[in-house]
């Protein structure tokens, strides 16, 4: 695994805002998503890597070389910004040829499938065509690293999903490492090999996308990445390799450990991990009996809130909801894989 780029303990003071001791590392072809709310410092971090801010401390390595003191034009970075940032006064071909006037760009245009758009102006392109133009333009400098600064933030949900898939397969094909900045957990979920959660200028959790989403390191991250059920509980005992958690009068199993503390914990359960059955269909005897409180329509999915002694949220297909004949008041049994019951110290 060769290192494509790294940020080593970089600190940057910018007016009242500060990035503190930032550490990032990308192997070749890896997609890192920098996830955080607005104002967390995601874009500033990206601008620092691109060379528009110089860190007061720390280093930035790109393609194995120290780039901390290089200007943006000598870093070999492909930058894609919000709404793709095409130059409106140039044609598609003019945009792609910006870095290499007179260079052979027809092959590049064909490579991303926009050969037929060479003479069009950006204003007349669809979002997908804009993305391809921006990618071809960045490819022209043979970048060692791609940086994406919320390119989808002005798009509607449907085109977002399509462009995200296309971008992912493009990056997989190109085999170029990329840092993608977004405030949307779904972007991160779909695109990321690894996720770094940033808040107030510091990275508060980094790891495989799956780990961050299923095992958030604290309550704030859990809420930010969309864990629907977060309730206080207490470790009541052990059962084999799992521990039994009491939540009020209810109890469930978790195979996840939690360090230290006095036995009080925060129990985190993602809604898609909750399975619902009609009361009486519970074969294991380990399920949580309860009643449906509310069913909300989320488009393709339905969000079912049940009262099992505590409020538990489940995400079901409409087909599922119909088959189970669920309605407010229905008696149900909820079951959760002990592996999916994540525990945080309650502090």
């Amino acid at each position: 695994m060769t290192l494509a780029a790294a940020v080593e303990r970089a600190s940057l003071q910018l007016g009242a805002f500060a990035l503190r001791d930032l550490d990032l590392a990308l192997t070749c072809g890896e997609i890192l998503v920098l996830l955080g709310p607005n104002g967390a410092g995601k874009s500033v971090c990206l601008e620092m890597i691109a060379g528009f801010h110089r860190p007061q401390r720390g280093r930035i390595l790109i393609a194995g070389k120290d780039a901390t003191r290089l200007p943006p034009e000598r870093r070999g970075i492909g930058l894609v910004v919000q709404d793709f940032g095409l130059f409106p006064h140039l044609t598609v071909a003019g945009n792609v040829a910006f870095s290499r006037p007179g260079g052979e760009i027809a092959a590049l245009l064909r490579q991303v499938g926009i050969g037929h758009l060479a003479d069009r102006r950006p204003a007349s392109l669809s979002a997908g065509e804009k993305q391809r133009t921006a990618l071809a333009r960045a490819l022209a400098i043979r970048p060692a690293l791609f940086l994406f600064d919320e390119p989808f933030s002005v798009l509607d949900a449907r085109s977002r999903a399509g462009l995200r898939d296309e971008l992912k397969s493009f990056l997989r094909h190109a085999g170029i490492a990329a840092i993608f900045v977004t405030h949307d957990p779904e972007d991160a979920w779909v695109l990321a090999d690894r996720v770094a959660v940033i808040r107030d200028g510091a990275i508060i959790q980094a790891g495989a996308a799956d780990a961050v989403f299923r095992k958030p390191a604290n309550r704030w991250i859990a809420e930010f990445v969309g864990v629907e059920t977060i309730v206080p509980g207490r470790i009541a005992g052990r059962a084999g390799n799992a521990c039994r958690i009491a939540i009020g009068t209810a109890s469930l199993l978790s195979t996840n450990a939690v360090g230290g503390g006095d036995g009080t914990v925060l129990v985190c359960v993602r809604a898609e991990e909750v399975e619902l059955r009609r009361a009486g269909d519970d074969r294991t005897g380990e399920g949580l009996p309860g009643r449906v409180i509310a069913i909300a329509n989320l488009g393709a999915w339905g969000r079912v809130t049940v009262d099992c002694g505590f409020a538990l949220t489940a995400l079901l297909t409409h087909r599922n909801i119909r088959d189970l004949r669920l309605a407010p008041g229905s008696a149900i049994v909820a079951s959760i894989d002990p592996e999916a019951v994540h525990l945080l110290p309650l502090a």
């Binding site: 060379g51 528009f52 200007p71 943006p72 000598r74 930058l79 894609v80 940032g85 870095s99």
Partner: peptide, 23 residues
């Protein structure tokens, strides 16, 4: 002018003067 356009132009190998003239 969106300052992001000027930043993108910089990453594409253009120095500040070239960005001024071309963008």
């Amino acid at each position: 002018i969106d300052p992001r356009l000027e930043r993108v132009a910089r990453t594409l190998g253009a120095g500040p003067w070239r960005v001024l003239w071309r963008i």
